[in-house]
Write a protein that binds this DNA or RNA. Structure first.
Lengths: 185, 185
DNA sequence: GAATTCATGTAACTTGTTACATGATTTA
DNA sequence: TAAATCATGTAACAAGTTACATGAATTC
């Protein structure tokens, strides 16, 4: 149940609409906590009912009215309590569709598996490139929102994705080479 | 929807009960695809309804009767089709409770964050140690089940967890040092 | 002329988690 | 004597995904 806390975390920076939150989730937090727009709207309703956030309507002429949410004192307390309660870290590796197939891949031709590993490596490299856009966005946001001290924490967190992607590339390359050794083509 | 396919993959090796499957999930596949026992039983019913697996009762005297499931021809086909349809690899980093708190951790004292990072590192080290038990179990199973060629694939897959855990340790150590530099205590 | 952006949501569905229920046997 | 193992499940709940609905303005 961390989506509402992620939302609270963002609303501490400034009031936002569901749509604003979606942009932030997509552009900055995808690698930490992705969220669907439908899920965000549903969660916002629940959070308002709990009194963690409040809202007001900002009428617009050419666009649909904006429903702007802001965090309440209750929300601040809830967020703080959550933040201080660090969980045991879970294994990151859980429920990976690619690895599950790999686990059972003795039923596949070595050539097919080699092909999939190459593709995997390319995708991870793209992931690393995408990280640069994320960093640019966060830099912009920390200026805009006037919370310069947060950028340091954001960057620390985000580096995780790149480090993991790099580790996975090494893993896949290693697997590839083992396959070539075992089944030279 | 990969839990049923994981189950099919295992039943290819040999017929098993829900309880047997749970043991295999816990001991060998936790880092790839964890599953609750209640989820397994539910899934087995659905899979039998679809005709992917069949079952027969093995009466026991001192223990509850065993309901042993085996894969059908239909199940084999379904499994093969799934196996060949490798997905785009998703970012592994998604939905991590620890990182989400880290992302917003400017609200925490640097000392607290340092403490949590140390704990994180210890937990990852334990994770790496646990991997050795997994490897021993898989070695035993590949002998027992008479599928020696699978062990190679299992090991390739499992190494992923250790590699990721090692990468995360480096990440956390890096963060720790940056914190010490920024906030010397 | 088609796709994207801004802006709101609802409904149905799928998947995963937690709690409950039973009960004999074995190990610590 | 308490906990773990073997062995079956059901029910309720929580969380995530996909599909649907609307519609003007803007960009490609």
């Amino acid at each position: 149940m961390s989506l509402p806390h992620a939302v609270l975390g963002m609303l501490r920076y400034r009031p936002m609409t569901g749509y604003d939150l979606k942009l932030f989730f997509d552009k900055a937090m995808e690698s930490v906590w992705p969220a669907q727009i439908s899920q965000i709207y549903r969660e916002l309703s629940l959070m308002e009912a709990k009194g963690w956030i409040g809202s007001h309507i900002e009428p617009q002429e050419t666009r649909p009215d904006r429903k702007v949410y802001s965090i309440t004192d209750d929300g601040e307390v809830t967020f703080k309590e959550w933040l201080e309660k660090f969980p045991r870290s879970l294994s990151v590796t859980t429920r990976d569709d690619f690895s599950l197939r790999m686990f059972f891949s003795s039923g596949l031709s070595p050539e097919e598996l080699k092909f999939q590993l190459k593709r995997f490596i390319r995708e991870k490299q793209d992931e690393i490139s995408d990280q640069q856009a994320v960093e640019r966005y966060l830099e912009k946001m920390s200026e805009e929102m006037g919370h310069p001290e947060d950028e340091f924490h954001w960057r620390m967190t985000l580096r995780r994705s790149s480090i993991l992607a790099e580790a996975l590339i090494l893993w896949a390359e290693d697997c590839y080479e083992e396959l070539v050794e075992k089944y030279p083509s």
